[in-house]
Computed example of a mutant assay.
Amino acid sequence: MIPLPVAAWMWRRLRWGFVLIVGWIIVGTVGYLLIERWSWFDSLYMTIITVFTIGFEEVHPLTEGGRAWTLVVIAVGVMIVAAGASYLAADIASGELRRLWRESKLTQDLNRLRDHYIVCGLGRVGWQIVLQLRREECSFCTIEITDRHCDELEAWGIPHQVADATDEDALRRAGIERAQGLVAAADSDAVNLLVVVSARSLVPQLNIVARVEDPANEPKLLRVGANRVLSPTVRAGQRMSQMLTRPTVVEYLDTLLYREGESLPFGVEEVEIASTGTLNNRTVAEIDTEFPDSRGPTVLAIKPSGKDFILQPRGTQLLHSGDLLVAVGYPEELAQLADLCR
């Protein structure tokens, strides 16, 4: 099905050709009426098969005047059709039709997104974020001011805007009102700050993660609305030192969080307890009763709304609406735990 914007564009480009061809069919029909004294239908039929050079046999034998008029109808009709076809072919060759078709498809894809993530900036850090979100099969779209990585994203079916992420219209088009989170991963702290300001002004409750190059700018990004700020340089240094001093711990956490290649039989997830959830106002120990055929997932930590983490919670710890559970377990157990929390 041709997208509506593409159909509208084609109509705007070809409407005069359409008007001319219809007008010429009317003129040709009147010509046969006057010259050959045929009926309206016979005259119209003869004009159409002549203009479009179909080559059917004449409706009636033609007089000399009729044959002369047929030559005129053919010549003018072919010129009009050829002009329209060449006009359309020039637009197709210029890439205009393909560009419009891609934009229409992008708009449709973006409008379908719900509870997704928005990645702003596709430099080295931003591209790694894209690869990780894709591995985890998350729903997301990207905004990058240049056209880098466009071919890969299009091949993967990931909606991608070539636009300025600080532009509120670009953020709205990315469905920021329906998004679950946004990451500002541009190479510039100034750009990331503007992205955070724009996103926070549009959706006050949005979860925003920002990249920072200069650690001195971290407080500024937090003040303007970022929930989390990360310096790739600082974090890389911390991780490398931990690989030296705690290699087994780092390997274990990487196994849980950064799964590559084949899917692992277990993982770690976070789930929020809703007011309507089965686990609301129940204890941690009661989670096991919901898994009679297995041990069930292990709750590593609880983060009550607005409070610090409760690490290694006791079985008597009461769960409340708004609490976030961090649990490790098999995929089917984690999925069942998420259902119990909803």
Rank of each mutant, 00 (worst) to 15 (best):
M1H: 13
M1E: 12
L4C: 02
W11H: 12
R12K: 13
R12V: 00
V27F: 11
V27I: 15
G31T: 09
G31N: 07
L33S: 04
L44W: 14
Y45W: 15
G55T: 06
E57M: 08
V59N: 05
H60G: 04
G66T: 03
I74V: 14
I80P: 05
L97I: 01
R98I: 01
W101G: 07
N111C: 06
Y117P: 03
G123F: 09
I129V: 15
Q132K: 14
I143W: 03
I145F: 06
D147M: 02
H149N: 11
E152P: 04
E152C: 01
E154L: 14
A155F: 03
W156N: 06
P159Q: 09
A165L: 06
A179F: 04
V183S: 04
A185M: 09
S188M: 11
L194T: 08
L194W: 07
S198C: 03
V203H: 11
R211Y: 03
E213K: 12
E213C: 06
L221G: 08
L222P: 03
A226R: 07
L230T: 12
R239I: 10
S241P: 00
L244N: 04
R246Q: 14
L253V: 06
D254F: 00
L257Y: 14
E260P: 02
S275V: 13
R282N: 09
S294W: 01
L300K: 00
L300R: 00
K303F: 00
L311A: 08
Q312G: 05
Q317A: 12
L319E: 13
H320T: 08
D323M: 05
C341Y: 01
